[in-house]
Design a protein around this nucleic acid. Structure first.
Lengths: 204, 204
DNA sequence: CACCATAAATCGAACGTTCATTCTAATTTA
DNA sequence: TAAATTAGAATGAACGTTCGATTTATGGTG
């Protein structure tokens, strides 16, 4: 997750993420980060400008990592339908494999603590852009209903975020089957009606 | 929103909500709450046990308010389909009319700062319980596919939360038409296939 | 209605603690 | 031996909370 950073920076970023999720930004003091990461406060300030800087760097790193991971999935699909399924599957995988990163982005994407320029990274380094494009194509090819593609992507992302949230809170289990079913129902939600009829039979 | 509280409590809760959304919990000091609410710190502690207490009371009040508002919508519908549309419409209305309350719940529903007992309020005083029941009925009546109703409710709530979030961040506009279209597509996502066929014609 | 005694509400200065950050000295590395 | 790295005590500001004083409301008595 933090490959491009050195040992000290990585320890600091990992520890910070850990504490923020466990205890809340408010309770994440530099003294605690120093203690748990094994890096002295003085040394932390040698690699980071401030506490704000650490948290924003953390945000940027996670968004970039997530972006690469999902885009890789999108690339692997050949048809639009395949890209759709592989892409969203990767989003769910991220939530399951890296729950702290997922929770962190969810909790702080709205926070004033994260600089606006850093939030923009979602579109430049994340997966939103490529996903928007995929939806535009799907509309052009009459697979999806004519709707604002950005709105559709948000809808589907929200769907997955919330089943992940509920899953992480232990409200229900998530099997690969149920995830698949959810993703299929996302497709169904926005597919052009003609599609369904072609699948089920001919009009009277 | 804070009808059951007295003047001072209301001023404190409203101010706190305001500052938290504007500046972040971390930057919400008692001194600032006192200054902006016009209530001295000493007097705040006459009505609240601690800062934590204020924030948790705020959370509880908003969840209860939202719960009442959505349940009222659910009651007004006669058919399942009507309840579905009116209920979710109210959720969107809440996000539009009371964006601060909406954002606050979104941002802190995962936070360790909110006591677990207070989080439970979503099910006891909120609208999740009644909505779950509606979905169970819809499954029994073969309107919806056989899927975990809790999972379905989370899916649809996530859908609406994310179009609201994007809307509040100014990514796109939300008309009552587009909201209606989104809610209809939520229904479509989980409706039993037979339904569609009956609408479109007979199977060849 | 005036008076006073008691209680409730309100205030803001003061307290002790904790915080982010700095600084200087020590240590390691090249 | 010079530069880069690391350490942790020191600093001053800011924090949540407390407390004694002051104001306002209440209700019984002459």
């Amino acid at each position: 997750m933090f490959e491009k950073y050195n040992k000290v920076q990585r320890a600091v970023l990992e520890t910070t993420l850990n504490i923020i999720i466990r205890k809340e930004l408010q309770a994440t003091s530099m003294a605690l980060i120093a203690k748990e990461s094994g890096v002295s406060t003085g040394n932390i300030y040698h690699y980071f400008q401030s506490k704000e800087d650490i948290v924003n760097e953390l945000y940027k790193a996670i968004v970039t990592f997530n972006g690469e991971y999902v885009r890789e999935g999108l690339l692997q699909g050949r048809t639009i339908r395949e890209k759709f399924e592989l892409g969203w599957n990767r989003v769910v995988e991220l939530g399951e494999k890296y729950p702290q990163g997922f929770q962190f982005i969810e909790q702080y994407s709205f926070s004033p603590y994260i600089y606006d320029e850093v939030k923009q990274a979602v579109y430049t380094d994340g997966w939103c852009g490529p996903m928007d494009k995929l939806y535009e194509e799907a509309i052009q090819q009459k697979l999806f209903i004519p709707m604002n593609p950005k709105l559709m992507v948000q809808m589907h992302y929200g769907t997955l975020v919330y089943i992940l949230k509920a899953h992480l809170q232990g409200i229900f289990e998530l099997t690969s089957d149920s995830v698949h079913e959810v993703i299929r129902s996302c497709w169904k939600a926005v597919q052009l009606a003609d599609d369904t009829v072609q699948l089920n039979g001919t009009i009277g």
